[in-house]
Design a protein around this nucleic acid. Structure first.
Lengths: 327, 327
DNA sequence: TTGAAAGCGCTAACAG
DNA sequence: CTGTTAGCGCTTTCAA
């Protein structure tokens, strides 16, 4: 590995000049050429660690998500990555596994590695951002809102809940259950609230509490809840799934019980990228995950550049794609 | 941010002692206590950048994969992460998007950031590892083999192809098509070879070339090829999908054409984590993706620790899960 | 526009 | 066991 000193010597200039060439400050054309030449010959790559140590900041942003195996988050990650790499930043993906302590470890690494900003979908409502915010680093919350005064990007979660439920009601279903994620995550709570409002208005006689389940945002969560609901003395005739994976689990269980979708109505909040189901049998509320990533990354970059305006929260609209094959 | 000097002063020791305390070299108990106390009071976190600059290596490993949206790779990533974090290493996930130049950029970053090792599923057979290997960093290839003399972990790809095909033949299918990934990726080629061998032996009269398609390892690849195959004058009565996403695409198209799986036989090489399909309608050759990640990470850590034995290639056996609902 | 020189925070000889 | 000291490679005043 060659250093700026090697390059400087070969080019006949000072190390400072080499540094300037690689940082775009004014250097005479001839010296620029000489330096570039020498750098080429030595296949010189600037040592980022040294630069980071000196500058106390690096062009890396951390993206902390609770489940790397959920396509919703990986799609979002793609959005973040595209914007970031366009701007010369790298993205480090950190999987908190929905555990606050793992999350805290990654946050600590982000500080210790001088990363310039963080985009985070918090593991929990108890996620503590005090330390990271105390360092002055910008943090953008995605998918889930926080109690902190920071930028955020969220889906129109309540609207997603209402649209999904309305669509099932319009299709004639009545006992519409809801399977959501952990109750204390605002995203899950909001979607549930949307379902509750619409369903109460349409069928005030229903026992909503009996039709509602809170589970993990994973396939097994959806499966467990769906099994429970089917075992009810009076099972639901339709179900709203609070996220994509819960939807997969619920549909799996229904299929296994011989209740293929239009038979029991299904609406899923979130897309099902890898489903083999006939796409028209299930209502899908598409959530613009990639767009969420793009928006969050742009906001973060603005903050990194020094933008000081008050914290903003962007709410992303979603798009309902109704089941079409219902008889 | 406080430094070891601050801690040293408060604890009444030298900076070197503070460093020793944080690196486990012998220090008297009382000084250890004093240092820990002081560090606590100042909420001191060692500056990793400085340590990296000094040590010329950091406890970070890069995991470069061609498609972060493929559950196969994210499952593998989980395996890598578990082993790595156990050993005190962090994992940086890099998405090459199957593009050699993006991949090269990440490799360059891995060097510039002094990461201690790389696990890579190469984008292409033209991936160039010369530069990274020249730095002396250990590299482990996963999922796809390379022409370099380095450690590797691959699936039993040919066996996967033969098992999948055999299962369909045993079930009575005859015109069994194959949809694989890019032909020049050895993983794809091997799986195809397995299919070809078995099918030729069973039905020597078939025109195999006409039943074979090479596509991208993605859902749209599977869709396109399946549409083509169905449009054939004499369409296949079964199909082997070369990976999970191709399987999803193929099944989607079949479903849309009213040919739900046991009607046309389907065998998929790779698991379908998020399908809503009745699990017993399709033959699945399970690939131990997580295990691949675990194995690769362990090998890499051994190399990082200085192991110099000749390069090894580990081949992971897979498990066939036959369709059970066939009549 | 250019160079000299002083660190960024940490580690690793080397003495003691 | 402990302290002193010399850098790791780069950026950035400060002078020239």
């Amino acid at each position: 590995m060659s250093t700026i000193y090697d390059v400087a010597e070969l080019a006949g200039v000072s190390p400072a000049t080499v540094s300037r060439v690689f940082n775009g400050t004014s250097v005479s054309d001839e010296k620029v050429a000489a330096v570039r030449d020498a750098a080429e010959k030595l296949s010189f790559t600037p040592n980022r660690t040294a630069r980071t140590l000196r500058r106390q900041s690096s062009e890396v942003i951390a993206l902390v998500i609770p489940d790397i195996e959920n396509p919703y988050f990986t799609e979002m990650a793609r959005g973040v990555e595209d914007v970031a790499s366009e701007a010369g930043y790298s993205v480090v993906l950190c999987n908190s596994d929905a555990q606050v302590d793992k999350e805290a470890t990654y946050l600590r690494i982000a500080i210790a590695e001088h990363m310039s900003g963080i985009i985070i979908a918090t593991a929990d409502e108890s996620t503590n951002l005090d330390t990271i915010l105390a360092t002055g680093r910008p943090v953008v919350a995605v998918d889930r809102s926080t109690t902190y005064d920071i930028d955020g990007v969220v889906m129109a979660n309540r609207a997603a809940g209402t649209s999904a439920t309305k669509d099932l009601i319009d299709a004639g279903y009545r006992r519409i259950a809801y399977i959501g994620g952990p109750e204390h995550i605002d995203t899950a709570a909001e979607r549930a609230a949307g379902w509750r409002t619409v369903l109460t208005a349409a069928h005030p006689d229903l026992d909503l509490d009996g039709l509602q389940r809170f589970e993990t945002f994973r396939v097994d969560g959806g499966r467990a809840a769906m099994e429970e609901l089917l075992a009810l003395p009076e099972p639901p005739d339709a179900v709203v799934a609070g996220n994509n994976l819960i939807g997969v689990g619920a549909i799996q269980v229904l299929t296994e019980h011989g209740l293929t979708p239009p038979e029991v109505g299904v609406a899923v909040i979130g897309s099902l990228p890898f489903t083999t189901l006939s796409p028209s049998a299930v209502t899908v509320v598409r959530l613009p995950a990639r767009h969420m990533g793009v928006t969050a990354a742009r906001m973060l970059l603005e903050r990194i550049k020094g933008d000081k305006q008050p914290a903003r929260t962007v709410v992303l609209r979603n798009e309902v794609q109704p089941a079409s094959k219902r008889s």
